[in-house]
């Protein structure tokens, strides 16, 4: 019975870790990779970044264990009906504020993956922060339609 409870607790902790990771003031919730065609030359990664500290932070670099040509930080901006993609040198998260990486806005791009991960698979990333800390993130591959549902779920787990 006890081992059963431990296993259950372990499973819950593991699940929580996929949605909410905090390190040195920055909390990452709901990280996900948008499912893409098997020959997709670029993959989008999204998440919510929350800064609970008194200091402005930013993500200055991103690494991944997935074999890719390079990783870039981007921001999509729309002028009239034209979507423009702007590579960014950092993603800012102001003190006591949040920045959402989402379709049509800030996002991380995994350029030219050797193999495109399938739905349900996990992509491991490391966010390099401006304060010198590094934060590991496990992002699950899923379709865009689940974004809203997962956001609602992560809000319920908010710890601030």
């Amino acid at each position: 019975m006890k081992s059963c409870i431990y296993r259950a607790m372990g499973a819950i902790l593991l699940t929580l870790s996929a949605f909410s990771v905090a390190a040195e003031g920055l909390m990452v919730t709901n990280p996900w990779v948008r499912s893409a065609p098997p020959n997709a030359p670029a993959l989008g990664v999204f998440m919510m970044l929350k800064n609970h500290s008194d200091t402005d932070l930013s993500v200055v670099d991103v690494r991944t264990t997935l074999e890719v040509n390079r990783v870039e930080m981007h921001r999509t901006m729309m002028t009239d009906d034209v979507m423009m993609m702007m590579p960014q040198e950092l993603i800012p998260v102001e003190a006591h504020s949040s920045t959402e990486l989402k379709p049509g806005s800030w996002h991380i791009m995994l350029i030219e993956p050797k193999q495109v991960p399938k739905m349900g698979e996990t992509v491991h990333l490391t966010l390099v922060l401006s304060n010198g800390f590094e934060q590991m993130v496990a992002a699950v591959v899923r379709q865009g339609e689940k974004m809203k549902m997962m956001e609602d779920h992560s809000h319920k787990m908010k710890m601030d």
């Binding site: 997709a40 989008g44 049509g104 996002h107 791009m109 339609e145």
Partner: peptide
Amino acid sequence: YTRCPDVCPTELFMMSE
């Protein structure tokens, strides 16, 4: 274009829906 990082996947997904 297929290297489209954000807009094309979003729109193609929307049209699949």
